[in-house]
Each structure stands twice: as structure tokens, then as C-alpha cells.
Nucleic acid binder design. Sequence first.
DNA 1: TTGCTCCTCACGTCACGTGAGGTGGC
DNA 2: TTGCTCCTCACGTCACGTGAGGTGGC
Lengths: 135, 135
Amino acid sequence: VRIGALASAAGTTVRTVRYYEELGLLAGTRTAGGHREYAEADVERLRELLRLKALLGLSLDELREVMAGEAARAERRRAWESASAQDRSRLLAEALTHTEGLLELVRRRRGELEAFEAELLERRARITDLLKAVP
Amino acid sequence: VRIGALASAAGTTVRTVRYYEELGLLAGTRTAGGHREYAEADVERLRELLRLKALLGLSLDELREVMAGEAARAERRRAWESASAQDRSRLLAEALTHTEGLLELVRRRRGELEAFEAELLERRARITDLLKAVP
DNA sequence: TTGCTCCTCACGTCACGTGAGGTGGC
DNA sequence: TTGCTCCTCACGTCACGTGAGGTGGC
């Protein structure tokens, strides 16, 4: 899959993909003609990047830190087959730590959103109360 | 309250406050010496702006549209005393529409966050299952 | 061969950050 | 009078957008 298909599959632009490559966030291979080429896993990775950025408000620098954990995740999958039982539980423990870190970020955000929603609901209640009192 | 106190009360920088003024998002008065001066209501307004931006990912242009509704809200408060019953219910209806618009945005965001959280929980479950199978 | 997509500069933009040099107010 | 905060330029930065001019692949 080439850059245009990748970008639209992830809901972004080719410019963004190129910029992320420049920053080392997403790496494709090149065809003989110099065109970038991507795998299905890269679509998922890009989606994840965009989601972390949009939903959690992370900068691209912060994304790089978080995705260092993601890179380690892919690494883990590759190392899996040839790993000993001891290595496997270590790999899993690392994956667990990484996932729980993300969960923590998501929950904090959700808390903030819910607080805001509660405030809006209260505002609305005050308005509808007044509406009943006025007519 | 002056610009430094306003900024730190809202959790931002003086540069941001000046920039928002430049865009017409937040207007203070000036002292004789040319220093900006703000009321308590401006602290709330700035907090709201920052929250809409951070939690909902709105651009400053979008904030301006949303806050046109907010400006109307302040206007409504001022017009309230001298308003007829008919005007009052119209003012309230507008306030209700505005608040429900915000609620809609917040809920959409919360839905996205919850979907992401569910995915992370599933990932975690898979990892802990594997951890039980390995040792 | 014709379209469409891709490529690399490279300048523009949005939302500020960061000094430079100077003035206001407890 | 001394500190601290404030002021206005104005250039820098981050995360891209947007052409300019040229090449690749069904």
C-alpha cells in the first residue's frame, strides 16, 4: 500500500505521513522508483498515533516516547517464537506496563471530560428550571 | 486582576492571553499606564476557552464560533433584568441550544475515548491471559 | 501515450515560545 | 530607589498546508 492509500485509510494527509517519517515516527520501505510503501501494520500504527494525538493531546515528541513502547511491542512479537518461558513472561510484563500506562492516560482524560459534562448538565438544569418558572 | 494573575489562575501563559486578545477571543480593559486589567468573569471565560481547546481539540477559529454563543450568554445576563417574559423565554431557549451543542461535542469525544479505553482493556486482558498460560 | 499518484524542495500558517529593549506600579 | 511585572516588537518553533516543478507506474 502506498502513501495516499495509507493516509486516507488512517484519515490524514500524505504531508502528515511524510512529516512523521521525517521525525522517525513511522517508517516505510521504498520501491525502485523511490515511492514509499507500507504494510497493513503501518496503517494500524498510524491510526494509533493519530488517536493518541487527538484524544490525549500528546505532542509528537511525547508520541515518540510512547511509541518507543510500541516499537518494543512489535519487537516483542518478533522475539516471541524464539523466546524462553522466562523471557516470555518478561516480555508480557513489559507489554502490560505499557498498556496500563496508556490506560492511565485515557482514564485521566475521561475524568476531565466527565467533569466538564457534569458542569454542562448542571447549566442545562438551571436553564430548564428557569424556563419552567418564566412562561 | 492583571495579566500574570489571570494567566496563572487559568493555567496558561501571558503570551497566550495576549494572543487570544489579538484574535478577539478575550478582551480586558487598560489601566492609565497601558497595563491590561481583567475581571473575575474573564478568568472563567479563559478557563472555558482552554478547556474547550484541550478537551475537544477545537482550533481558535472554532473557539471563536462557539464563544460567539458565550458572548451571547453574557449579553443575555445583562439583558435579563429589563426583559419581558417573552424575551426571557427566548433568551433561555438560546442558552439551552448553546449548552446542548456543547454537550453534544463532549459526548462525542467521550464516546471516542471510551472506545479507545475498551480496546486497551481488551489488549490488557489478552496479555494477562497469556501471562497465566506461560509460567 | 494519457492520467493519476508519487517525489523533493521550500515558503506559508497557526498557536504560541522566547528574548530584546523599555516602562508601570506597590 | 529597588524589584517585579508589565508593555510592544519581532524572530523562532511545532505541526503541518500548499504550491512549484518534475518523475513513477497501472
